[in-house]
Computed example of a mutant assay.
Amino acid sequence: MADSAKPRKIRKKKLGSYPFASVIFSISMALFVLGLFALLLLHANRLQAIIQENLEVQVFLDRDLSEANRIKISKTLASKRYTAAKDNKAQIRYISKEEAAEGFLDNPDEEIALLGDNPLRDSYVMKLKPEYYQADSLEMIKSEIQQTSGIFEVTYVKSLVESVNENLAKIGLILLGFAILLLIVVLVLINNTIKLALFSQRFLIRSMQLVGATSRFIRKPFLTRAFLHGVLAGVVASALLYALMQWAYTRIEDLHLLADWRNSVIVFAALIIAGGFVGWYSTWRAMNKYLRLSLDELY
C-alpha cells in the first residue's frame, strides 16, 4: 500500500534569523522607559528655567528723580550683562509709586491722604539670566547696581532664591542617580534579551564552524540584523513617546508650556542610534561567547 502522505517539508534556518518580534518588543520597551525618563528631565529643566525666570530683582529709585535720570538708569540696567532679554528686549519693567500704591494699599487715595504723602518709591523690576540666580551672583549684582547714582536700594527675596536653588540641586541629584541606575538596568535587559534570542542559534553557529566558516562570516548576518532590529526598536519607542507627549499635553493643563521640541527630537534620535548600537554590541558579545563554546557547553 503506497503511502499517500505528503512528504514533510523541513524548514531551513537562515543564518542570523531568530524570533525577532520579542527582541524588538523588549528593546522598544526598555528604550521607551529610558526615553520617558529623559523627557521628564527635559520638562524638569524647563520648569526650573521658568521658575528662575520669574524670580525678580527690585531696584528702588531716589525720590524726586528727574525723568532724564530715570531713563538713564533704565538704559544702564538694560545694558548689564546679567539682565535677561526676550526678543532682543531687556526684561525691565518700570513701576511708578502710584502703581505700587494701587497694589500695596487697599484704598490708595484715602490712605495716602491720611499719610499726607505717598511713602512708596518709583522702582524698576528686572529679570536676570538663569545662570545668575545664585546667592553669590545676586549679592554681587546687588552691590554693583546700588553704586549707580539715583538708586536708593536693591532688593530680592533671598530666602526664596536659596530655597529654590537648594530644592533644584536636590532634585537634580536624585534624577541623576535614577538616570544612571535606569541606564544600567536597560543595558542589562537588552543584553540578556539578545543573548537569550541567540541561544536558539547556537547549534547552527556550531554547524557553520564545522564546515569551515570563519567567525567574521558567521557574525555578519547576526550583527546586521541586530543593528536593524535595534534601530526599528528605537523608532517604535520614539513613536510611542511622541504619542504619549501629545496625549499628556491635551490632558494636563499648561503642560505644553514645558515643551522643548528641539531637545525632544534629539532624545528621539538618540534612542534610535542607541537602539542600533546596543543591539549590535550585545549581539557581538553574545556571538563571541557562542563561538568559543565547546560541544559539551552547547547543551
Rank of each mutant, 00 (worst) to 15 (best):
N288K: 13
L271F: 08
L115H: 09
G177W: 01
R202Q: 03
L138Q: 03
E111H: 07
T83V: 05
E166Y: 07
P221R: 11
Q91H: 13
V59E: 00
Q134I: 08
L105T: 06
F203T: 06
F20Q: 13
L210G: 10
M140K: 15
K80I: 11
V265K: 14
G276S: 07
M245K: 15
R216N: 12
I92F: 01
L258P: 06
L34G: 05
G275C: 05
I205V: 12
I272W: 07
L181N: 04
R216P: 04
D62N: 11
D64P: 05
M126W: 04
I218A: 02
A248K: 01
I141A: 02
L198F: 04
V188D: 06
Y18H: 10
Q246H: 14
R219F: 04
S17C: 12
K158H: 02
L295N: 15
I27N: 03
L120D: 01
V157H: 13
F32Q: 03
S96P: 13
S96L: 11
M208P: 08
L182C: 03
L271Q: 00
S163C: 02
S207D: 04
L196N: 08
A239H: 06
Q91G: 12
T193C: 01
Y249M: 04
Q147C: 03
I218F: 01
A248Q: 03
K9Q: 13
T283M: 05
I273S: 11
V185T: 14
G16K: 00
Q146A: 07
D87F: 06
I51L: 15
I141C: 05
A49F: 14
I73K: 01
L173E: 08
F178R: 00
S96K: 05
L293H: 12
F217Q: 05
T250P: 11
M126T: 06
D254N: 13
A233N: 01
A259Y: 04
D62C: 10
A286N: 05
A100R: 10
L175R: 07
S200H: 12
I50A: 13
A237G: 00
L183T: 15
D87E: 10
N54F: 02
L232G: 13
L223H: 04
N165F: 02
Q201W: 03
A100M: 14
L40R: 10
T224H: 12
R206S: 11
R11K: 15
P19L: 11
I141Q: 02
N165V: 06
I92V: 12
V154N: 00
L228C: 12
G103W: 07
A248W: 06
Y133K: 15
F20G: 10
K170H: 08
T214Y: 12
L40E: 02
D62H: 10
P7Y: 10
R206F: 09
V161P: 00
G234T: 01
M1P: 13
L244P: 07
L176N: 09
Q134W: 05
K158F: 00
L40W: 08
I205K: 00
A233Q: 02
L298G: 12
R285T: 11
R285H: 13
